[in-house]
Design a protein around this nucleic acid. Structure first.
Lengths: 359, 359
DNA sequence: CTGAAAGCGCTTACAG
DNA sequence: CTGAAAGCGCTTACAG
């Protein structure tokens, strides 16, 4: 009794004041303070002035933990990034999604827990449940078992660019097949027919559809599958792009390929780096196209022709939809797929039919 | 009474069971369940078996919010990234710090709130306080007033690569001045004397010290300041690097510069892209060196010689130190500055004295 | 317009 | 070894 709150000054430094302290100093009850703060329910102007003044003076900050306790709502959202390898937030593509999530969440008054799961275990998902997040945003590689596990929580969630579509689950994705088609259209229209393709992990929806859209268009315009070379990449990393191109360099030349398409930018740029090191002129000798439009794509030299995937929009939509789910809005309509856009840059040009790699 | 908990199966789907439910089903008191879960205090093997079995069966997940309420500890840490411009998590350098923070936090059983503050206001910091985070990690541009404001909270915090050192505040930084010296040493030892310098915002500690270390070394080996050209950049972005180099291109050539040093990688690569577009051969005609060793630096073509700043270590250390502060360990010693390391790549080579830009 | 009481889901002394 | 009670900081009916 003696140690506690005998001086206003001390108190506001030593510890955050509570609603109880405010009430005592204002000479009203906790209920009244609570009503004034929340703005609902009645309160007299005098009480209001006094309480608001005290709040200012004591730097009162409502305890969100206590609020969450009674309202059964934390206003926290968990973002789970499922990746096998290291980079999480700093991933060139997923990082942009996370950025947009952060922005939109702040606008809607949510805080964001960011976590990752390297080994695709349930650990971090379970952890988020213990923290009682209001909802979950799941990004990237999502196997069915993880989804089942999370579904069993009964907490709202949305998926962003997951490996696979799942019935009844909101899944925010790009029109990847259409994007693949657009690349094929661009390359064939600029005269390329023999195209070398580096295809990222086909177990992932987006890489699969990008390749599919590409090949379908090629056949559509009468170019045989046999004129293309498809090389599978185990990951979708820069390093793999470089590696594959260095191993396939001979085959690339002998095959008379005039263009390269990779199912994402990092693979494309990895391959491009190898080509540049062999003094291949891009786009004069070889045109290169990627997919995603990561920041890096426009910075590379030569800058990379690619399909822009609106990562920011994906992040923004995921938060908005999740918010509707959390607030139990009735008519939450599943989002349309995002429209991809072709961005032509320095790395592609018309095929010079007479080109040759013989120096 | 009828609606509630008349079926185990239903319950675990409908809602997370509480300690109370577990207790009822096990025929013991809440206290006993709590003791069994926490592992402290005594409990009979029979009670333990029953309770543990129920926990498994009902998928009981302790409510971290309630725990936080009583323990006055959330086991949550807030990461505040102060930036004027958009990219936050996906920033090539700061994103790596965040990644490491995420990893180390998981190891130490903390969850991470990631937020940002564009306008350098107090808003997100205040918000984190309402969430009652155990501690704060502050990254990048930190003005004194923000630090004062946060200090007034009385919550532990550490700074990472902030704009300025502050007495009594743990600040994790790289030995930037030494790094600047290393670049100067490398460039002079490879025969460069007339060096063009793009200097990032001098209001920020790291850019300032990098330049200082560089210039000091130059003078030390007898190269006059007048032989170098220092160009100030308003931001530390790729775009600014490109812009500056394009505006200064004439001056660059006329000045007989054989090398370029920028106080971070993004500026360096921006400038490099412009040079490459002018068909300047790097490193044959111009050597280029940056600072940070962002992922992109090794991917660029030509890959960039730079100073590696151990961003991961910065992130890891920040969490470890903050954890010590939170746990009120007595002998928390301020961290030593991180050692920079020169990484020589394709963008630098010995100066060819006879070089010329006259095509 | 206001206050006393109950309760959100836990933990922590304190009795037994 | 176990249970009843108090309490963490709020909000929300319910009386007055």
């Amino acid at each position: 009794m003696w140690e506690r709150s005998h001086s206003l000054e001390r108190e506001c430094i030593v510890d955050n004041p509570t609603i109880k302290e405010i009430a005592k100093h204002a000479g009203v009850s906790k209920s009244t303070v609570s009503r004034i703060i929340s703005g609902k329910g009645y309160s007299s102007p005098e009480a209001r002035d006094k309480v608001l003044g005290l709040i200012e003076e004591l730097h009162y900050k409502p305890n969100a933990v206590a609020r969450a306790m009674v309202s059964q709502r934390t206003h926290n959202i968990g973002v789970l990034l499922f990746r096998r390898d290291h980079p999480i937030a700093s991933h060139p593509f997923y990082g942009k999604i996370v950025d947009a999530v952060l922005l939109e969440a702040a606008r809607l008054n949510y805080s964001i827990f960011v976590t990752t799961d390297h080994d695709m275990s349930y650990r971090s998902a379970d952890f988020m449940m213990e923290k009682r997040v209001d909802g979950l945003i799941l990004i990237s590689r999502l196997q069915q078992n993880v989804i089942d596990h999370i579904t069993s929580f009964g907490v709202p969630f949305v998926m962003v660019n997951g490996s696979t579509d799942v019935d009844g689950v909101i899944h925010i994705v790009n029109e990847d097949e259409e994007g693949g088609r657009m690349v094929a259209e661009h390359l064939t229209q600029t005269g390329h027919e023999r195209i070398f393709i580096i295809a990222g992990p086909q177990s992932h929806r987006s890489h699969h559809l990008r390749l599919k859209g590409f090949m379908t268009y090629m056949r559509h315009v009468g170019i045989q599958d046999s004129e293309s070379t498809i090389q599978a990449a185990a990951t979708s990393s820069f390093g793999d792009g470089y590696e594959i191109m260095s191993r396939q360099w001979d085959a690339f030349r002998k095959g008379g390929h005039t263009a390269l398409f990779a199912t994402n930018d990092m693979l494309a740029m990895g391959a491009m780096k190898f080509l540049l090191e062999q003094a291949v002129r891009i786009p004069e000798q070889v045109s290169v196209a990627g997919f995603d439009d990561v920041d890096f794509a426009s910075m590379f030299s030569p800058s990379l022709t690619t399909i822009r995937v609106d990562a920011a929009e994906m992040g923004t939509q995921s938060v908005r939809l999740l918010d509707q789910l959390i607030r139990q809005e009735t008519n939450v309509l599943p989002p349309g797929q995002l429209k991809p856009r072709l961005i032509v840059r320095q790395s592609t040009a018309c095929s010079a039919k007479d080109q040759s790699f013989n120096d």
